[in-house]
Design a binder for these strands. Structure first.
Length: 397
DNA sequence: CCATGAAACCTTGCCACAGAAAAGT
DNA sequence: TAACTTTTCTGTGGCAAGGTTTCAT
């Protein structure tokens, strides 16, 4: 099975293979026409340059070794794997052998953002026209966006001082958090990490000055690189429409981004700089909080004890106290870009775990212990299935 | 227009277990 | 230092309980 959350590769430019073009970022795709390994940004730049370039066939780099072009897509893991890794991983144990794999399809056209697979395991290629269809609506919402975006710019001292968007009852004047805790998300949308880059010499590639919108898109949605190997499986429900629940979540996400007003939240923060151990992220939050953010945090910080968030280890993010008009405009623009790419679908990070969870016996919704008989039956089933097909198939329900 | 109760909706915690990562030898 | 073993921790889905919001009266 694939390794989980190994961020080592992302830390300190120790990627197995870097982009052949910029040489500052990890490669994510391999262009067959150019025989080049490219990062997302360079891939977008190069292959959006002209029609000929856009026809170059590319494949994702193997998510396991991150060195070779992917040859197979494992449906169970939703992972793109090279031939060697595929053989290695799927010969590890009988369960892994049951994973269904299909030859990976090349990417063509101009794709933007991270790899995503649909239900059929095919790569979703975003059209450059996608944005233009939103323009009308986007313009209509510009004014609203402006206000909303402004509310996100908590660094605005007026906003902070009047408390209109902050129910924080802590009146301690020395408290400079002002939403910084909750800025785990805010950070993602406003790229405050960039302000940290100057004080943190060993920042990863995201702090490079050539941050394009494409790179921002990497933050906005889970990306395979963030997990250093295992896959991300976006989940859509039913006909793919955003559910009411998701809409509400978005609403809360928009207006209670800082968690100050979200009363039902279980997160128990204390504003004197400590966090209690009851921080809880619901399953819905998984889709709301970009995982890349979480992984970014873990890039430089080792795993913390269960139930804690280690926000105070490591370098302190320096918050600018004033924003110039240009800074503000840039932030609003970036905010809008990310708003377009927000995804509220629940993200399944480990499809194999999902498969296990779905097969697991339950009592009133809770997982229950498997009896010996059930284990035996399961083993018999898997053995006979593998005997018949040679390849294992993860059962679908 | 306000108060009250009911209904609908939403959030959270719980459970077992495979597997990844860390820690120990 | 490498190899191996043990321990710790995470993520997964369905249900129930309890909290919140909405609506009718």
């Amino acid at each position: 099975m694939l390794k989980e959350e190994s961020n080592d590769a992302a830390a300190g430019n120790s990627w197995p293979r870097i982009c052949d073009t910029c040489r500052v970022a990890a490669c994510t795709v391999y262009c067959r026409a150019d025989s080049a390994y490219l990062c997302s940004g360079c891939d977008a730049t190069i292959h959006a340059a002209n029609r000929v370039a856009s026809r170059h066939e590319r494949v994702w780099v193997c998510e396991a070794c991150e060195r070779a072009p992917a040859a197979f897509l494992c449906k169970a893991d939703a992972a793109s794997l090279c031939t060697a890794c595929d053989a290695d991983i799927h010969s590890a144990n009988p369960l892994a052998r049951r994973h269904q794999r299909v030859p990976i399809l090349p990417i063509s056209g101009f794709h933007r953002g991270p790899p995503a697979t649909d239900h059929g395991g095919q790569i979703i290629v975003e059209s450059t026209l996608a944005d233009t269809t939103e323009d009308g609506l986007d313009e209509a919402m510009d004014e609203e966006d402006e206000d909303e975006a402004a509310s996100w710019l908590l660094l605005n001292p007026v906003k902070n001082s009047n408390g209109s968007n902050n129910n924080n009852t802590n009146n301690n004047p020395s408290n400079n958090n002002n939403g910084f805790f909750f800025g785990v998300e805010m950070d993602d949308y406003l790229d405050l990490v960039e302000y940290n880059s100057s004080s943190c010499a060993d920042q990863n590639q995201f702090s490079t000055t050539s941050a394009t919108n494409d790179q921002h898109n990497q933050y906005a949605v889970p990306h395979k690189i963030s997990y250093g190997g295992d896959s991300v499986v976006p989940v859509q429900y039913g006909d793919g429409k955003v559910t009411q629940m998701q809409m509400q979540q978005q609403h809360k996400h928009n207006f209670h981004q800082l968690g100050m007003e979200y009363e039902s939240s279980k997160a128990a923060y204390s504003y004197d700089g400590s966090i209690t151990h009851t921080v809880s992220v619901s399953s819905m939050d998984v889709g709301v909080v970009p995982d890349s953010t979480m992984s970014d945090m873990s890039v430089s910080h080792p795993r913390t004890p269960k139930g804690t968030i280690d926000l105070f280890n490591g370098p302190t993010i320096q918050m600018p106290t004033q924003l110039s008009p240009m800074d503000r405009e840039a932030r609003v623009l970036r905010y809008r870009e990310k708003k377009k790419t927000r995804k509220f679908e629940k993200t399944i990070r480990y499809a194999s775990r999902k498969a296990y969870a779905e097969t697991r016996p339950r009592i009133k919704g809770r997982f229950a212990k498997r009896t010996d008989i059930e284990v035996e039956v399961d083993q018999m089933f898997s053995t006979s299935l593998m005997g018949e097909t040679g390849y294992g198939i993860v059962p679908s329900f």
